[in-house]
Design a binder for these strands. Structure first.
Lengths: 352, 352
DNA sequence: TATTGGCAGTCAGGTGACCTGAGTGCTAAG
DNA sequence: CTTAGCACTCAGGTCACCTGACTGCCAATA
């Protein structure tokens, strides 16, 4: 077992290594921290930590470096999420407060978060899964072209074009018909969860005269497709340049890392698997990122910090940062948590 | 002056250097290309090329490398844009053909282009500048919340939320009023260029009863803001990982390059300055990218290829690729041109 | 038993000497 | 104008060497 002092040694190893980027040895530990024991004693503790695979030596005669497992223990037991400074909090409020729509909110969120952490920041669009229909529009755009617009209570707007030859969609009659259709759609579907609208859409044509059936069905199919296609979430990303800045933290090129990030599927899966309790911040470290498809091994030397935010309608999405395992967990976790909280407040009140 | 053979030498230097990534010397030139003269003669030609600053020697005893100026001459005079293979053409059609909306089109475009060129691909949203209003929606979303949706003939949809306390926007009366407002807005503004709608919006309230004036003005202001805020273009980007792959082509870190790319303003300015004739491809090489704001010197060692595409309504936007100056101009220019052409066709017919 | 000082051993990384080979510029001759 | 030849340059690889920062272990100590 590792003694209390041993854990304390682990902590300072992580902290010093993150700060200095150099393997830390027993001598520097006793010099920089008041342990009240000699370097030899620290060496004994370090031998135990190495036994437990919490630290490792890059080569025989060098100091020690935390392993993924070491970072894990550090994150779980040894670090306090230190609160942000008031200046930083204000920066969040002023910068995010200016956003005009959901796109803008998420774009600003990632830019802000990447600046606060000096890492790559990621944010997921609120999932359609548990979102509800707020409003549906059907608009004729010329003779044979119809646009459907789906607005959800998460503030998301998706449009879809469909082509219906011979629909005569720009006549007054069609306009009236669209009005009726719009009314019925909103009456039937308004407030329903997106996952549940399928059935109602299928029966839609029964409510209209048979000669309209084809058109109604085309529109219903378009809406259904719109919902299905958008079920797959999208990610917003910012701060990729920070990866290049910290390139020396990676053993090889940063190419596989960038590639894994652009392959958004991997991150979406990873976000999905990370359990997040309340407004906490979850961390996935190094090899823990594996198993999310080919390309995910590009994330072998990175850590992902994630938290959740809630858009109105209760739909939860993730946001977080990604960087080398050698990162300042304490500060970055605080930043992620603060931004997630603020985002929840913003989107909650904004769409209440 | 540089002789004809001298230019031919420049051409093979560029081609060989791009292919091999190594300075090319007189001996390898006579070995690999049938010039019918000796290495010494080539050396004389190279001395002239160096005199003209078209090539340079990294160090005394090594082969030569093209300068920015050398690439410029190569691009302007010595390269044929070789057509794409049928397979590649088909890839463009099938991949882009599946797109469902403008976001999707541009996202697919950049992913495709980055795959075709192995470089970073960029695409600009069609500018609002010359776009026209296709449709405007006004929707009540609860008691005090109103959403305006602006649809342009470029296929772009922008929504905006506004808060009007006490608007009672969810009453039947309000709904009717919104219908009237919607009708008037579309009648007055439909088909107008976005740049020209300002005046009409200002006079809008005069058409409604005075007790509605405040609300109408709020909505008009919202629409005006929506147009103004979106005048500034956005960029879609893909293939940043390719920069990491070609990292050895840059003298320093790729950090400043990535940073310049994320700072979209620089690229938007650069795109704006590049003159594009017809469906040609314009190239900006190395130092030519300077002068577009701080951070632009990050693009000192990159070249930007750009072409234009036309969305219906005549609004022109740019797309292109960015990579190290040491790139395969011939192939990449062909890819950019082909994608730009296809995009014009797609967006033209799709919104005709 | 836990801690300590001391000592021998290890090894990454820096330095300097050296060599090799690719490539050049120049000159004189064809 | 072209060519062959020659002397020169220099990047980059290799090798030997040294230094300094660590460690592991052991015997002494509190």
């Amino acid at each position: 077992m590792v003694s209390d002092r041993g854990l304390e040694v682990l902590r300072v190893i992580v902290q010093d290594y993150v700060a200095s980027r150099e393997p830390v040895g027993s001598k520097t530990i006793v010099e920089r921290h008041a342990f009240g024991v000699s370097a030899a004693t620290i060496r004994n503790d370090m031998a135990q930590l190495e036994e437990e695979e919490l630290i490792t030596a890059p080569h025989t005669s060098s100091g020690r470096v935390p392993t993924d497992k070491g970072y894990r223990v550090f994150v779980d037991q040894l670090t306090e999420v230190r609160p942000l400074t008031t200046v930083q909090r204000q920066a969040i409020e002023t910068f995010l407060g200016q956003a005009v729509d959901l796109d803008d909110v998420l774009s600003r969120t990632t830019r802000l978060l990447s600046q606060l952490t000096n890492q790559v920041a990621l944010a997921q669009y609120p999932s359609f899964g548990s979102a509800r229909v707020r409003h549906i529009e059907v608009v004729g755009l010329g003779a044979s072209r119809i646009m459907t617009v789906l607005i959800t209570d998460t503030g998301r707007v998706d449009q879809h074009l469909l082509e219906v030859p011979g629909a005569a969609a720009d006549t007054p009659a069609a306009s009236e018909f669209f009005g009726e259709l719009r009314g019925r759609l909103n009456a039937e579907l308004g407030g329903k969860a997106l996952a549940d609208v399928g059935d109602s859409l299928r029966d839609l044509a029964a409510n209209f005269s048979p000669d309209r059936a084809e058109l109604v069905n085309a529109i219903a199919a378009s809406l259904a497709e719109q919902i299905a296609a958008n079920r797959q979430d999208r990610l917003v990303m910012s701060g990729a340049a920070n990866l290049a800045r910290t390139a020396s933290d990676f053993s090889g090129s940063i190419y596989p890392v960038l590639e894994a990030i652009e392959e958004q599927v991997i991150l979406i899966k990873l976000f999905g698997e990370m359990e997040i309790d309340g407004d906490g911040v979850t961390v996935s470290i190094g090899h823990e990122n594996q198993g999310f498809g080919p390309g995910a091994q590009g994330l072998n030397e990175t850590s992902v910090l994630a938290s959740g935010y809630t858009a109105s309608g209760g739909s939860v999405a993730r946001l977080g940062v990604l960087g080398p395992t050698r990162m300042d967990y304490s500060t970055n976790m605080a930043a992620v948590r603060a931004v997630a909280r603020y985002l929840t407040r913003l989107l909650g009140e904004d769409n209440a």
